[in-house]
Structures are given as C-alpha cells and as structure tokens.
Amino acid sequence: MAKKFAIIATKGSLDWAYPPFILSSTAAALGYEVQIFFTFYGINLLKKKLDLKVTSLGNPGMPMPMPMPVLLQALPGMQAMMTAMMKQKIKSKGVASIPELRDLCVEADVKFIACQMTVDLFDFKHRDLLDGIDYGGAATFLEFAGQSDIAMYM
C-alpha cells in the first residue's frame, strides 16, 4: 500500500507557498498518496488567480540586496518591489514558479482540501478557488492524517 503524507498549509505568502508544493509534488513522484489541508492564509494558495507576495517585515532572516532600515521597508511600494525581485531571483536560479509546482501537484493527484471554516471566516468564494478541490474541516483532515506516515504543519 502507498505511504501517506498529510500537510497543513497555513501561510499565504510567495515564500511560504514553496514548502507544501515542493514536498507534495516530490512525495507524489516517490509514490506517496498526498493530501494538503489549506487553512487560514493558506487558502490563498488555492486561488485560481494566484497573487502571492513576499515581505521582509517581521522577517529579519530575509536576505536583502542591501542593508535597509525596517521603517524604509514599510514604505508604500516596497512589498511589490520585493515580490518582483524575489520572482526574478526564483526565475534566474531555475527554481519552479508556484503556479508550475501547483500544476504538477494537481497532475500527480495530490488532493487539495480547503478549510470551509476559513472560507466562511474570510468570505472566500468557491468560484475564486480551484475547481475540483474538496471542502472540509478538522475531522476531514484528521481522518487522513491519522492513517498517514508523515504529517506536517507548514
């Protein structure tokens, strides 16, 4: 029987979109059955039109091209600029884009489950999220996670 891998994806930024999609696409290639439960800001990773951004605010570990005081990083337009620079870096280093990795997950039958509570809480619309995904709650996740070989929170 195939090994099982359960992930909870809670973050909705461009950088934090990578761990769930990289691990699940790779696990699927290795023969795992994979489910990702998207909750809170992680729901953003399920949008048909992805618009993910990065910010250095509250993240002193983010490598910056030049030293920059935190107050400057908070100026209007900085987030858009950092996101553009990050996307450029991702491309130049041969790292897959998030839409590409997400497509590979879908192709490999990774199962996506959106947290219905979060959808209600933040007024997400089902029509704005990927077609063919499931909606469920904690019990839905635990049913699969309880039988899985690996379970991770991201």
Partner: peptide
C-alpha cells in the same frame, strides 16, 4: 539549470 525538485519530477 533546473533546481529542486524539478530534476526529480
């Protein structure tokens, strides 16, 4: 030129 996990995939 491809980076992890693309070569494997």
């Amino acid at each position: 030129g491809l980076n992890c996990p693309l070569p494997i995939l």
